[in-house]
Every structure is written in structure tokens, then in C-alpha cells.
Design a protein around this nucleic acid. Sequence first.
DNA 1: GATTGAATAGAATATATATTCCATTTCCTC
DNA 2: GAGGAAATGGAATATATATTCTATTCAATC
Lengths: 272, 272
Amino acid sequence: MKKPAAPASVDEFQERLVQIADTLPKRLRQCADFVAHNTDKIALSTVAELAAGAGVQPSAFMRFCQLLGFAGFSDMQRLFRDSYGQRWPDYATRLDNLRSEGGQSPAALLAEFIEAGRLSLERLASTVDSEALDAAVAALAAAPTIHVMGMRRAFPVATYLSYAFEKMDIPSILHDGVGKLGRRHAIRPGDVVIAISFAPYTQETIDLAVYARERGNEVVAITDTVTSPLRRLGVHALNVSEVDVGSFRALSATLSLAIALAVAVGATRQSR
Amino acid sequence: MKKPAAPASVDEFQERLVQIADTLPKRLRQCADFVAHNTDKIALSTVAELAAGAGVQPSAFMRFCQLLGFAGFSDMQRLFRDSYGQRWPDYATRLDNLRSEGGQSPAALLAEFIEAGRLSLERLASTVDSEALDAAVAALAAAPTIHVMGMRRAFPVATYLSYAFEKMDIPSILHDGVGKLGRRHAIRPGDVVIAISFAPYTQETIDLAVYARERGNEVVAITDTVTSPLRRLGVHALNVSEVDVGSFRALSATLSLAIALAVAVGATRQSR
DNA sequence: GATTGAATAGAATATATATTCCATTTCCTC
DNA sequence: GAGGAAATGGAATATATATTCTATTCAATC
């Protein structure tokens, strides 16, 4: 008779779940599937609700909890409530305090941007296309030199990528347009271009992407809508939509995607 | 006999709270104070727990709920549970899915950076110094010209600020060090410098800040630790500490602070 | 196709938690 | 300082929810 200890963290819980998922009978399997896809609901729901969601009887859900090593549902729920609490120590409260400084005060504005950034990150987490990301990383990791271009609001993203590549000793060139010199002829066969552009799209950036595609170079695009002109070029498109505050848009999600891309490329290169 | 409708959103709830706070008797006042400072706990706690936290009897807490227009505690809690659910539709789940792609996969890396960004934003919300921010905005709003400087990892922040100022027709100069030309003599009396630097601090940025202070110009510093060399110069110091992933640090919090600063300056100038 | 063990559904029960009630205290007003 | 109204504490009760139990179904093995 095995007596497995209950998972002590949400991560352990997830791990255990995939371990046993295959060995489960029908109804308990339904529980596992439902829980895996609705982890966030556990903290706030009742057994009855979760059981209904999974399409099983409450008693089946109880057996499921016990099989995972918990004393019962309440025991399992405690794990999720605790982790929930830790995540949000008193963020909501603090934000309210900032907001209460008054509509147009700097603190209130900051609160808006913080919230917008948080929402953007969330949205990124739920909309990112893993396959496209993998493909982009693979292409970039194989490139002799990486060319980066982004103007206006995308320029900070380009410079950040440039900084990250430099730090990891990855050959890269920032096409910054200084002195209108242009550097497009530095793009050699096999090189890959990262083009970053958001509506209203900067023509120079589009031009560089078109140029690269015509010469047979791969292009990774970091852009916003699905109607972006960059998408039509047969590129690796990575989509980010930022939440805006008034007419301003923060860059939290875009930069997180960019740095993850850069580090992933660095890691892939290392392992060669 | 008044019969106020229950607040329909967390915002309305907060509003109602400050409205009636002064008119409440002692015990109910304790409830209001506790709730105001622990809004985040409501969704997951029991009346008994909250009452204990506020230092009152459960029955007192019940009366408090009813006074706000709710049928009872459960009714009030529903409001918070709902808003909680909306905020985190399935963020946690999605993040877990990304992570499950495997330790070094691009998606897993992205998840790390998203989480780091979120934590950084949270931390920013709870550590920002409203007074310092106000003072910085006031100084910048009065400046004939704003000078911006940041190198390496701070460079994206500097370029972003530069972009924002340009968009709002605010005179600004980006000291980007192109061609080692230097532009320090462009700093005229009354001008204000924004110096952005993180450990290890770039000497050129420090130098510019020192130079400006010696000439009597005000300086706004965006920096990390309290031991930053920028702080010793008698500047308006804005503190940001980013959570790092491995040896990389995202810029979510820093950029949110920067854009809020810029927009606040723009708004202040407008209202003159 | 009978036998056996696991799996399941649904009702019965236990427990935790919210809610109400009332006796007692506290704080005003005259 | 007496009277009354409001506020409070604590116990009693109601309700929601978790948990267990048992009869029944299902699936595998011989």
C-alpha cells in the first residue's frame, strides 16, 4: 500500500498530475483533465462546482483529491489558497492607495501604467504562439549575424535586444538609421532580421524586412495586429498587444517577449 | 429608513467605504479600517478570520456587511471573488502551460520573464515614493529643456523617454554618446537632467549628473539600490528594483515608471 | 458466461461557517 | 444622574459544504 505525501506546492502538484494522469480510471481522469485546465478555479470553487465542471459526482472528485495524497478537498484547496495569497500580498491595496492620490496625480498615472503593464503581460501569457516562438528562436540561433531594426516606439525594444545580444557575445547589428546611412548591405546570406514595428508602421522598417525577404533572408517580426504589413511577407510573426493608457502604450509585454527571445537564442547557441 | 443598494464593483465598494467611514461607531470603524487595508484578503477568508483580524466579534462584522448594503458576508464576499476571477481569467493556467513546455524552452523562458515582470510591477506599486515622484514631475515640468541620459541597459529607457517627450512636444535632448561628441554644454540654466543608471553604474552617466549638479541644475535619477552613486548628489531619486531571471533583468517596472513620469510631466505642462 | 474486484453514483452524515437573536453594556440626552 | 437608544458580545441556530458510506454498475479474468 503506497502512501504518497501530498504535493507541497503548486508546481509539485502539476508534476504529480502528469505523472499519474495515464494510470487513472475514466472519471478520475476527467477530474485530472479538468483540474489541469482550470487550475485557477480551485482556490475559489466548491467541490460541487468543480465536480460539475469535470462532469463527475462530488464523491468522485473527493477520491481524486485523496489519490493525490491530500486528506480531502479542503486540504487540497488550502494549497491553492495559500499560493494565491502569496502572489497577491497586498498589491490590490497598494494600487488603490496610489490611485486615491487623485485622477491626474503622478502616482495615479503610475498606477494606471502598472495595471496596464500587468494586463499586457497576462494577455501575452495567454496569446503567445509557442510554435512560432520556437521557430523564431531556431532561425535566429542559426544566423551568423542578427540584424535588428525598430523605430519610434519600437526603438527601445531594438536597443534592448541589441544590448542583450552584445552581452551574450552574439553577433548583431542595430539598424538605427543614424545619419541616414543605412546598413542594408551588411545583410549577408544566412543572416536573420528582427523587424519590430507597431501601428502606424514605420516605412523604413517595413522596407528592410521586404528587402531581406527578397534576398532570401529569414525575418522575425515583433508586431501587433494580425493585419500588420509585416505578416504578409512570410515571416516568423510574434504577436504582442499592449493595453494602452490614454494615447500611450507601455512596453512591458513587448520587452518581456524580446528579452525571452534573446535569452532563448543565447541558450540554444550555447548548446551547440 | 434608507436602504442603500450594495456596491456593484470593488471600486464602488471602496468609494462607499470612505463615504461612511467617519459616521461609524467604534467596532464597525475597526472593520472598515481593517477591510480598507486588507481588501485582498476578503475573497479567501471567513468572517471569523476577518473579524479576528479587525479585533471584533463575527457578529459585529456581519452588521458591518449589512450596513454597506449587502445581505450578509457571503454576499459581500461574492463581489470580491467575482472580481478576482475576472482579473485572473486563466493567467495562472496559461503560465503553467507555458512552463510545462520544459525548462529551457523559449516558452518556459518567456513564462519566467512574464512572471518576473509582474512581480517587478507589483513591487513598484508598493515601494514607490509618491512625494519624490511629485517633486520630480514638478521640477521637470518647469524645465525649458529636459536632458535624458542612460547607457547600456538603461539606454532603452532613455530612448523611450525621448520618444514620449517628442510625441508631447516637450523640448528634450537625448545624450546618446554617438561619436563620443558629448552634448553637455547644451545644458542651460534651469534645464533638468534625467539620469538613468543601474549597477554596475556607467561612469559617463554619473559624470553628466555630477556636472549638472555642479552647475546648479536639478537632476532626476532613475536608479536601483539605495547605495546608488546617483543618490549622493542631492537629486530627485526614483527607486526601481527589478526581479531578475538568471543574470538578466527585465525593464517592465522601470519603463512603467518612466512613461508615467513623462506623461505626468506632459499633463502638468498642459495645465499651465 | 460466471466470478471477483475495482469504480461509481447517490444518499446520508459530519463539519465548518454564516447568520441571527437576545441579554448586557455603553454612550448620549435631558 | 436617570432614562432611553444605540452598540456590543457571545451563544444559539441555520445553512452551505465537505466527507463518508453503501448499494449498484462496470470491466476484467478464467
